[in-house]
Structure formats: C-alpha cells, structure tokens
Amino acid sequence: MQQFFIVLCLVLMVLAGGAAVMFRSMLKSSISLAVASALLAAVLFLMGAYWASIFELSVCSGLITVVFVSAVSLTNTDRCSEVRVREHKARVAVLPAILIFAGAALLFILFNSDFNIVASATPASFSAFKEALWSLRQADILGQIIVILAGTFAVIVLFKERDNI
C-alpha cells in the first residue's frame, strides 16, 4: 500500500514537473514547481525521511515559490515568456530524442547494477537523525551558517544598494 502511494506520488510529481516546463505563463510554471516539490515531500515522507520531508515542504515548495513569484511580479514577465520553437525547429525535435536516448541508456545501466538494499523503508529514528546531524555533520552545519551569511550579503548587494551607474 505504502509502495503504491510512493509510485502514485512519483507519477504525479513527474507530471507536475512536466507542466512546469510546458506552461507558457511563468506564474503557472512556478506553481507547478511548488506542486512537484510538495509531491516530492510526500514521497520523502512515505520513504521514512520525515525531517527531509518537512524541510522540502516548507522551504522548497514554500520559500522558493515565494522567491519565484516575487521575481516574476517584479519583472512583469508573466506573459512574455517566449519559446524557442520558431527559430530552431530541427534542434527542438532532435534534442528530446537525444535526451530520451541518453536517459534510456542510463536506466539500462542502472537497472543492470545490483543494489544491495539493506533496509528498505525503515524510518530513521529521531535520535539517529540528531546524532547524524549534530555530531557527524559539523562541517555541514558550519557551511550552512556561512552560506546564510553569504545569502545575507547577496541580498544587501543585489537588492538593497541603489546602483549609481
């Protein structure tokens, strides 16, 4: 049953991702991305990765969508998203073929590799997660602090300062 839901959510996620690519409107694209992200969060939850799932739901499908929507509205480009079909008909036809071929080859390779699955779908306990995060991944936490600092400076440079040129 659980596996059925995983598969269902995955299918829906791929569909939402495809929609994000195909929509002409930027706003609709961003929202499709958010939906895909939310479905991914559901998949992660079903696979037992609860904390990752929470982060995915709140940060990716929440925060990033806000960022995109604000970018779209700040630039008034909801409707003027043009597609490269007119000028490069040949390329547009060839490209998906190449991509699908490459994807099929990759899948073939992956399916032929023997995954030794140890403990499928065992949810990680909170203590194990805490242990992993706080004592094994010190460097990553330091990295997160630094990257948030970097983000702050980026916002200061890119948004706050009036340009004088």
Partner: peptide, 18 residues
C-alpha cells in the same frame, strides 16, 4: 533508503535544501 543510512541522507538533504 537503499543502504539503510536514512538519517545521514536526511542531513545531506537538509543542507542541500538550504
């Protein structure tokens, strides 16, 4: 999920999302 070390994988995902 495959190798049974889901806790570690989740910490990766969280850092990556940030």
């Amino acid at each position: 999920w495959v190798n049974g070390n889901l806790a570690l994988a989740q910490t990766f995902v969280i850092t990556m999302i940030v």
